[in-house]
């Protein structure tokens, strides 16, 4: 059976670049109403913690069009499979209210379309998930049971 690099070994920089990719063509929507594109974001906060319910990382991204305006929140899980990974939207179609509600999610990640090849190539080539021969990857010790802020910044053109 083929092995792959665990999601839990992603570095902070790789976590940020993963968010950059998955929200790059960002069209976070609620009930079909487009909220904003990533190009409009002026505030972004990336938090992660151990997914607990599955092997992997849960991401929570808060973002806003204006720094001081109300933040929208979107969340997804990267889960380790046996020889693959899953990108799982955190929403009420998938998880219980007890799990979803504390996250204060306002945008459904499932509403953000992702280019299949680009996403796969990113994980295969940039993050080298399927290449264990280059360097030994170690667990990112920042990823624990409590939220860890990987990035919080004001985005300026």
């Amino acid at each position: 059976m083929e092995r792959i690099r665990s999601i839990l070994t992603l570095t902070d920089d790789e976590i940020i670049s993963t968010v950059d990719l998955l929200l790059k063509i960002s069209r976070p929507v609620i009930d079909g109403v487009e909220l904003m594109s990533s190009g409009d974001m002026r505030y972004r906060k990336i938090e992660v913690k151990s997914a607990e319910i599955v092997p992997g990382i849960i991401f929570r991204i808060s973002y806003a069009e204006e720094v001081n305006s109300k933040k929208d929140v979107v969340s997804f899980i990267l889960e380790d499979g046996i020889n693959d990974i899953f990108i799982l939207p955190v929403n009420r179609a998938r998880y219980t209210a007890d799990f979803v509600n504390p996250l204060n999610i306002t945008s459904n990640f499932a509403g953000i379309d992702q280019p299949v090849r680009e996403v796969y190539m990113f994980f295969a080539e940039n993050l080298q998930l399927w290449n264990l021969s280059i360097v030994p990857f170690s667990i990112n010790n920042n990823i624990k049971d409590d939220w860890y802020t990987v990035e919080e910044k004001i985005i300026i053109d």
């Binding site: 929507v29 609620i30 009930d31 079909g32 109403v33 889960e79 499979g81 020889n83 693959d84 990974i85 899953f86 990108i87 799982l88 939207p89 929403n91 179609a93 998938r94 945008s107 459904n108 990640f109 499932a110 509403g111 379309d113 299949v116 996403v119 796969y120 994980f123 295969a124 399927w130």
Partner: peptide, 26 residues
């Protein structure tokens, strides 16, 4: 619903959000 909107979701007669499925990216 998040992707196509509530109205079109109903018009298509869909009652289950496919995003609940696991799809391996590779």
């Amino acid at each position: 619903k998040a992707y196509i909107g509530d109205a079109y979701f109903k018009k298509l007669g869909i009652n289950f959000d496919f995003s609940a499925f696991n799809i391996e990216i590779r």
